[in-house]
């Protein structure tokens, strides 16, 4: 167990190194600027729209939900793509060859993906804070809850991402089974407008998944109490949100290690080589 915690510490440092590498990587920076910048532009273009029933500007109401959506997206799709790509290029096999290397690898992924939220938050929050009248109405408590909810969002979503990444055989599977479903859920989870705009069955479906609950909890953490008028039934649902997110966390943290172990057991030099050949053919 001591050796295992040593490997996890090695993995935490690995995550930090990978985060620094990603900050220097033009592709990752372009991703932050395009998605973050595009979202900010959309918000600021609608800054004079007032959300009915709250008296608040559209960007103020939408921002917490967008942070929630990006947290769930990053925590699910990020590790899923990492896992499938790094299984293909042999990174995972390297980890498997070292003592407790897989524990270190997963620890590194957690650090990398959680830290990956920080630049995105900066790109979203800084311009909005400068241009809008108000972003955070709950003061220090609200900022604290932002951090807590992001971490809760991660424990609820990241195991799903790791499971998708373990089951996917190639990156396009992650798009099909991870990225598109998450984007689809986001569209109907009350992030861009009240969830009551959608048919009842759609409301039922989105209430199974983390995005809706993290969104409503995030609005509770950011917005003045009056904003609850636009929530379902005109009230906050924070305790229920915490219960649902914790339930996802427990199920995910029970399942993910098993799925990861099963996936890792199958890794070998010839498995990597076979996927490499397959990839060569795919790319022509």
């Amino acid at each position: 167990m001591n050796a295992r915690s040593h490997a996890i510490r090695v993995g935490l440092r690995r995550g930090w190194t990978e985060f620094l590498i990603s900050l220097r990587n033009p592709e990752d920076l372009a991703f932050y600027l395009m998605w973050g910048g595009g979202t900010v532009a959309y918000l600021l273009l609608n800054r004079n729209v007032v959300v009915e029933g709250t008296g608040l500007a559209f960007p103020t109401v939408a921002l917490p939900g967008l942070i929630a959506a990006m947290t769930v997206f990053g925590a699910t799709v990020g590790p899923a793509f990492s896992l499938v790509i790094e299984r293909e290029d042999g990174t995972l096999l390297r980890a498997k060859a070292a003592p407790h290397g897989m524990s270190g690898y997963v620890a590194g992924q957690v650090v990398l993906q959680v830290l990956g939220v920080v630049p995105m938050l900066a790109v979203l929050l800084l311009p909005c804070a400068l241009v809008l009248d108000g972003v955070m109405y709950q003061g220090a408590f609200g900022w604290f809850m932002l951090v807590v909810l992001i971490l809760l969002g991660f424990t609820a979503s990241m195991p799903i991402g790791l499971i998708i990444g373990s089951l996917a055989r190639k990156p396009s599977h992650v798009s099909t089974w991870g990225m598109f479903p998450v984007i689809g859920l986001t569209l109907f989870s009350g992030i861009f407008g009240p969830v009551t705009n959608h048919p009842g069955w759609v409301q039922g479906v989105v209430q199974v998944f983390p995005t809706y609950w993290l969104g409503t909890a995030m609005r509770w953490a950011f917005l003045p109490d009056g904003a609850k008028a636009i929530e379902l039934g005109g009230t906050w649902h924070t305790p229920m949100a915490v219960v649902v997110l914790l339930a996802w966390s427990v199920v995910g943290l029970l399942l993910a290690p098993r799925v990861l172990r099963r996936m890792a057991r199958r890794e070998s030099g010839s498995a990597v080589e076979a996927r490499r050949q397959e990839r060569m053919q795919r790319l022509g």
Binding site: E86, D89, L93, R94, A97, P99, H100, E273
Partner: peptide, 14 residues
């Protein structure tokens, strides 16, 4: 694993 070394034919990891 600490006693076992493996030289892998890497492709493009890291």
């Amino acid at each position: 694993r600490a006693g076992v070394g493996i030289v892998l034919q890497s492709w493009r990891d890291h």
